[in-house]
Design a binder for these strands. Structure first.
Length: 573
DNA sequence: GCCGTTTTCGGCCCGACTGTTTTCAGTCG
């Protein structure tokens, strides 16, 4: 069984949990969590790195000891240290830590005093009112534990960005109805454009005498109030999404924005730069010996540590600070750079709208071209095109193109990559097309090697241009299929093929990390909506967020080019 | 457990809010 980076992340986080409960040195605990985070953000499989004899200690936060533990996990699938800890304590304790309000200290007390080591025993003890008498606990804590177990909200998955956007917009509109609000920004992972968000962090500055907190908790979608203070309050909405409001003074707005935008790893890295210059950086500003040096704008904060402004999407401590120090930050792509959409469907197959409607919507966006890429015959449920119907679509597009002025409708297909790597339609008809997009829609469960070979074989066909939704994952719904994405990206570089960044809110595939891999390997990316209706053409903005998180500039993206330039690039010789 | 322009020891980010206390530990972000 192949060991994934996520297996290592899980093992290390579990070790950290149990060490914390045992009361181990907190910095030792942090070392495990830091290493887990480092491994989690790698684009390459650690198992592959070990096979290639790459020393894992090259990665920051991984020393000799943890490198050996990673090798053990890769070789044996388990970590003896974790086994021993779970035997010493109990594997059920991990679940207890996930309950809001229970941290390592409280779990330790529950375990030692009452022998509670899993959710059922915790629930029983709470019901029997045994918890309230423990030192540091009380009736309210006991009631809250019981409520959390019954609510089960702590097991909930993260909210997709596009859903968070809708919620955030309404909440911000509501907050603005209070006239005391001056500035307002939704910070956190939402502002960084992450594909999912855990909660919303809203930052405001207000006029003197404002009672914004009362207004905040009075919102009609609030299900319950977690906390309410002078500068910070937290609520949970009916949807289950947590929203925090922070009121910050005007002079500290930039510092607070930086602090609450994160990511945590980025903030720590910036604060460490500050420490070297004897600067203390927190949400109130940048201070030297209690004297305020900056805080009004984010730019000022960065300036104090000799950095240019870093865009929120880059703030993950994945090299942006080093790039900023060398003045080599990317000039990130913007929505306005996009000149066409290279992957859309019509009602000829499983789309909702007609070809004509899709074209006029694209023209409304001032695009220069739109590729009509319906499914091929193998996707029966979508009434995919056979050779005959594709030929008819080609004729129709040729006819329409004579009367569209400068706008060009591109003849395209989303052709299925069959199990053996052949394409679902014959080469002679595919050659007639402007763009051939290949995609996997079946046989997701092939082995990693077979799946990789299948797609490589498809890319070997000289008609092949773009690999659609390369990992096949659906956010919160389906894991990516087993495939060596890095190998596929290398292969695209060798063959003159391209990768898609599918902008559908459920896909966002390639993800940020692999977008950067593609960029580093010189493979251009098509940011495409895969729209099945006129409305979905708007998903382009989601693709742009993901592209920016992947460090992409306009030049890295295929569809920032004019059709003339694009046509040349698509020619495989 | 990691790390090093303070380099093999002694640091490691920091503040708000809650509940349980009666001055603060624990949790969270």
């Amino acid at each position: 069984m192949p060991i994934h980076n996520s297996d290592i992340v899980e093992n290390f986080n579990k070790v950290a949990d149990l060490l914390e409960i045992k009361g181990a040195n907190p910095f030792r605990v942090r070392a495990y969590r830091n290493a887990a985070r480092t491994i989690g953000s790698l684009s390459k499989s650690v198992a592959d790195l070990i096979a290639e004899d790459r020393p894992l200690t090259d990665f920051s936060g991984i020393g000799k000891d943890l490198a050996e533990k990673i090798e053990e996990i890769v070789k044996t699938g388990t970590l003896s240290q974790l086994k021993a800890l779970e035997k010493d304590l109990s594997p059920g304790l991990h679940d207890l830590l996930r309950i809001p309000g229970l941290g390592p200290k409280k779990v330790k007390t529950l375990y030692e005093e009452l022998g509670i080591d899993d959710l059922p025993s915790l629930k029983k003890a709470a019901r029997d009112q045994k918890i309230r008498d423990l030192e540091g606990f009380g009736a309210r804590t006991e009631a809250s534990i019981l409520a959390e177990i019954e609510r089960h909200s702590w097991g909930k998955s993260r909210t997709k960005w596009v859903i968070a956007e809708e919620i955030a917009r309404s909440y911000v509109d509501y907050l603005r109805k209070d006239n005391s609000v001056k500035d307002i920004t939704v910070a956190g992972s939402y502002r960084r454009g992450q594909e999912t968000v855990g909660d919303l962090d809203i930052l405001v500055t207000v006029k003197r005498g404002s009672d914004i907190m009362a207004h905040f908790v009075d919102y009609e979608d609030v299900d319950r109030i977690i906390s309410r203070g002078e500068t910070r309050s937290s609520v949970v909405l009916r949807t289950g999404l947590q929203v925090d409001l922070r009121v910050v003074p005007q002079v500290a707005y930039g510092a607070a924005l930086h602090y609450f935008t994160g990511s945590k790893a980025h903030n720590i890295a910036v604060r460490k730069l500050g420490q070297k210059k004897s600067l203390k950086i927190n949400e109130y500003g940048v201070f030297k010996n209690d004297e305020r040096r900056a805080g009004k704008t984010e730019k000022d904060v960065f300036k104090q540590v000799n950095l240019p402004y870093i865009e929120p999407e880059l703030r993950e401590d994945r090299g942006e600070i080093q790039a900023a120090q060398k003045n080599r930050l990317p000039d990130l792509i913007e929505l306005a750079d996009i000149r066409g959409d290279l992957h859309v469907h019509t009602n000829e197959t499983d789309g909702r709208d007609t070809l004509e409607d899709m074209v006029s919507a694209a023209q409304g966006k001032e695009y220069a071209y739109l590729a009509i890429s319906n499914h091929s015959q193998h996707v029966g449920i979508a009434r995919g095109l056979d050779r005959k119907r594709l030929a008819r679509q080609i004729e129709k597009i040729d006819r329409l193109n004579t009367k569209n002025g400068n706008f060009v409708i591109l003849k395209a297909i989303e052709v299925d990559i069959l199990k053996d790597g052949s394409l679902d339609l014959p080469d002679d008809i595919l050659k007639e097309l402007d763009v051939v997009i290949g995609a996997v829609h079946s046989d997701f469960r092939l082995s990693r090697q077979k799946q990789t070979e299948r797609i490589l074989r498809a890319m070997d066909n000289p008609v092949f241009n773009i690999l659609a939704h390369p990992s096949g994952r659906l956010i919160n719904a389906r894991e990516p299929y087993e495939v060596d994405l890095e190998r596929l990206i290398e292969a695209a570089a060798e063959r003159g093929c391209f990768m898609e960044l599918n902008a559908h809110p459920d896909r966002l595939d390639l993800n940020d990390v692999f977008c950067k891999t593609a960029k580093d390997l010189g493979v251009k990316i098509a940011v495409s909506t895969d729209a099945h209706s006129v409305d979905s053409l708007d998903h382009m903005r989601l693709g742009i967020h993901q592209a920016r998180r992947g460090w992409l500039e306009a030049d890295d993206v295929l569809n920032t080019r004019s059709w003339r330039e694009l046509k040349k690039i698509l020619q495989r010789s």
